[in-house]
């Protein structure tokens, strides 16, 4: 689907807990294909402190209802304002933006590693992988059990493993402490990850050591979302690339990360 700016109608605002919401936004037009990994840039209106749009992964797409859903973790004024969106109101939305995750062409055993709000970019990927009969495992890390939301959704598409920093659910520690990454990584043919940069670097390091295909979805701050401000760059073997148009998904072999 080509990039567009539309006033999408809020048809649901699902409060998962104190600081996690899912907004379901409906287009008046028929949605064309949106790929796992793509994102939307939402305008926060009537805010005295928020100036720029806020980018979010497209959490899921319903082509029958012409809706996209956006997973919002409240981290600042922009996300707080959006989390209060009223059903029936409209949100000025630029979408779909960015490239996409590369899916295997044959059935593979794949691992998805999400941390914090980074899980938002992995659900539609898990769904696509599952629909194409890949064997999917999903490892989700969070600070605490209250930050682990939507696990039932993820479990529809594969085996879900969890870690929490405080040990309130799953394995205590970081995702990198989980046996599936520590011990079983070489059983996977592909790893995808999205989350805090230190986590993605740790995942990338392990994948690189074992020469496993690995793609990451980056979350650099951006002003435009469509490749003109050149603010969200990341350093690659081919020079600076825009996370918004040449990403957000990058293969670890392209990134010039010190890992």
């Amino acid at each position: 689907m080509r990039k567009t700016v539309q006033h999408l109608k809020v048809i649901a605002n699902l409060r998962l807990n104190d600081d996690h919401h899912i907004l379901v936004l409906q287009s008046a037009d028929k949605l064309e294909q949106i790929h796992p990994g793509q994102f939307a840039n939402l305008l926060v209106e009537n805010s005295s402190t928020v100036f720029l749009r806020r980018p979010f992964s497209i959490y899921s797409v319903d082509y029958a209802q012409n809706t996209i859903s956006i997973y919002i973790k409240i981290i600042g004024e922009g996300t707080r304002a959006l989390s209060k969106a009223v059903v029936g109101s409209e949100i000025d939305t630029m979408f779909p933006l960015g490239n996409k995750f590369t899916l295997p062409t044959e059935k593979e055993k794949v691992l998805l590693v999400g941390g914090g709000s980074g899980v938002a970019s992995l659900k539609s990927l898990a769904q696509s992988l599952h629909e194409k009969s890949n064997e999917v495992a999903i490892l989700i890390g969070a600070r605490s059990s209250k930050d682990l939301v939507e696990l039932d959704e993820f479990s529809k598409y594969g085996t879900v493993y969890t870690t929490t920093e405080d040990g309130t659910q799953g394995v205590k520690g970081y995702v990198t402490n989980h046996p599936v990454l520590e011990l079983e990584l070489s059983t996977f043919q592909r790893v995808y990850s999205c989350g805090p940069e230190p986590m993605m670097k740790a995942v990338a390091k392990k994948a690189k050591e074992k020469s496993i295909f690995c793609e990451l979805s980056l979350e650099n701050t951006m002003a435009c979302g469509f490749g003109v401000c050149l603010c969200c760059i990341t350093t690659t073997i081919d020079g600076h690339k825009c996370v918004c148009t040449e990403g957000p998904v990058f293969n670890i072999n392209i990134l010039k990360w010190e890992i």
């Binding site: 100036f51 701050t221 020079g239 600076h240």
Partner: peptide, 15 residues
Amino acid sequence: QGNDYPRMAETASGM
């Protein structure tokens, strides 16, 4: 190549 990341900061009514 331009400057290193980060290259942008949002500010009150601007950037």
